[in-house]
Design a protein around this nucleic acid. Structure first.
Length: 498
RNA sequence: GCGCUUGUAGCUCAGUGGAUAGAGCGCCGCCCUGCGGAGGCGGAGGCCGAGGGUUCGAAUCCCUCCAAGCGCACCA
């Protein structure tokens, strides 16, 4: 039977109670449901009733979900690429919370391992050089302006003690002090970006409290460890990975991967998160397969572990590329970057693209305070509404008893429908872990409001239209609440005036 | 060589099996005796990287190829 005949028949079978005005068949075989406009309009009352909680859904049912993000080695300051993960992670966490997940935001602090040692040695060498003792910086060591600053700070704070110590003692002291300074700097940058963590989880703790040994014996019991060339291997190829991985080097030290196994054991088996989202930069994407084999080895359902891999960020000023390199020192630090473009623009642009796509960030565009810039477009809609409501209050108009059924202009109905989309957007983002949809929705919502504003005068001077004025003010208030919610979920300011 | 990601308007990007593929910027032409013009309307502009397949139907799924980014350590 052809599709049109089928839909012609089934369209008459819908006799359920739904706020549907009509159902029609359309080519080449669609059923179009037209919502009852009275019902649509009445939802404005619901939005205002719900207030700040409009958009919340019960999808997560209070289940625990850990979102691990940023987790940059504390051997250097954050850069622009890290900021992308930070913004995506914090906004996604806000949205998951709105979807009734119990969200735990976490920074995994790599405070152990060879890179930390190298970091300490680099500072120590720099320290000696500053004292006139010519010392070689280790191969692939850390350098740059920030290393000089850290060295100077340590010299000022601890120089007298360090000079009395043996090299080994000095190195340890410098390591602790250097780590502390870097962590402080990272925390400071994150706070500026409006990113807050619930927990800073120490890698070292996994060794100190026995978690690693527990995991190791579990793997051993499952016959997944192998001693070869004096090193200890996790035979992940048995579980489908394309190669085995070393977890203890021939010098006896555990690798980063060893901690990662213990860390995920901790997440799922000790802290019992139902879901875990790891937000990693694309330079770590190669670790995904082996971590999936870890899930198998630990007998954890792999679908409980999700990844968001954020692609690289390229900075541009207009059409010229801005180079970024940790080693050359030609580095735009995150704090300089935020100072230049502002937190709101920074967050918006990082959120506006799918994590899967590389991001071209045009500094000049983001700085523009004009309609070229979607940040201002959205915030302007909010400020505009606040201004209208201020006017209404000055005129002592109490609009909360307004009758929304009077709203009949097509731009009003379009705006209402757009507002009512909000919970669906939260749902979509939560299911797919794609916060960029919120940035697009916010733009569409702002556009629907601006169009409405252009077509319908809210506060009429004609006293016969007093009831309509009240209804329109109610729609403005619902729009304001929704735009405000979007901005707040994205971690952006919702200015009352600009 | 292998793996992950990307390829859609001049530019930056949405669109994970359905209707005439969308938005912003840029370009062209319009709209203010009115609540914030940081606004609105209209227009031009597309072989959805290429080629095969699956399907009633593909930007979307599968295969091959091309191009770009990132990975492929007893670093993290």
């Amino acid at each position: 039977m052809n599709p049109m005949k089928i839909v012609e028949i089934i369209k008459d079978l819908f006799k359920v109670k739904m706020p549907i005005e009509s159902i029609s068949a359309a080519k080449p075989g669609f059923l179009n449901f037209t919502l009852d406009p009275a019902w649509v309009k009445s939802q404005i009352n619901k939005v205002i009733e719900l207030g700040e909680s409009f958009g919340n859904i019960s999808l997560g049912a209070g289940v625990g979900i850990q979102v691990e993000f940023v987790s940059v080695n504390p051997t250097g300051p954050l850069h622009i690429g890290h900021a992308r993960g930070a913004v995506v992670g914090s906004s996604l966490s806000n949205i998951l919370t709105a979807a009734d997940y119990q969200v735990h935001k976490e920074y995994y602090l790599n405070d152990a391992g060879a890179q930390i040692e190298k970091f300490a040695m680099s500072i120590f060498a720099n320290y000696k050089n500053q004292k006139g003792i010519v010392t070689k910086i280790p191969d692939d060591g850390y350098q740059g302006e920030y290393i000089d600053e850290v060295t100077s700070t340590i010299e000022a704070d601890l120089g007298h003690q360090i000079d009395e110590m043996s090299d080994q003692e000095a190195l340890n002291t410098i390591k602790d002090a250097g780590l502390e300074l870097m962590i402080k700097a990272i925390k400071h940058d994150l706070i500026t970006l409006r990113v807050e963590m619930d927990e800073w989880f120490s890698e070292t703790s996994l060794y100190e409290n026995g978690t690693y040994n527990e995991v190791k014996s579990k793997l051993n019991n499952n016959n997944l460890l192998l001693k070869k060339d004096n090193a200890l291997w996790f035979t992940s190829s048995k579980l489908g990975d394309d190669k085995d991985n070393v977890i203890e080097k021939s010098n006896g030290n555990p690798t980063y991967f060893a901690s990662d196994i213990a860390y995920h054991y901790n997440k799922f088996k000790i802290r019992d998160f139902k879901f875990v989202v790891n937000i990693w930069g694309s330079d770590h994407q190669g670790h995904v397969p082996r971590l999936k084999t870890v899930m198998q080895a630990l007998e954890i359902d792999p679908s409980r572990l999700k990844f968001i891999i954020t692609q690289m960020v390229k900075l541009k000023r207009g059409s010229t590329a801005v180079k970024m390199s940790k080693r050359t020192g030609e580095l735009i630090t995150l704090s300089d970057f935020i100072k230049e473009v502002g937190v709101d623009a920074c967050r918006f642009f990082f959120l506006s693209r799918s994590a899967d796509s590389q991001l071209d960030f045009d500094i000049e565009l983001a700085k523009q305070k004009s309609s070229d810039n979607p940040v201002y477009y959205i915030q302007y809609a909010h400020a505009r509404i606040c201004s209208i409501i201020r006017n209404a209050k000055q005129q002592k108009i109490d609009f909360l008893n307004g009758n929304v059924d009077l709203l009949d202009h097509s731009t009003e109905l379009d705006l209402i429908k757009k507002i009512l989309n909000m919970p669906e957007i939260i749902r979509l983002i939560s299911l797919r872990l794609e916060p960029h949809h919120l940035a697009h929705y916010a733009q569409e919502l702002a556009a629907a409001f601006h169009l409405y504003y252009q077509n319908c005068k809210v506060i009429s001077t004609d006293t016969s239209e007093f009831e309509l004025t009240k209804a329109r003010l109610k729609l403005c208030e619902a729009s304001r609440l929704t735009i405000n919610r979007c901005l707040s979920l994205m971690g952006m300011a919702a200015p009352k005036e600009m």
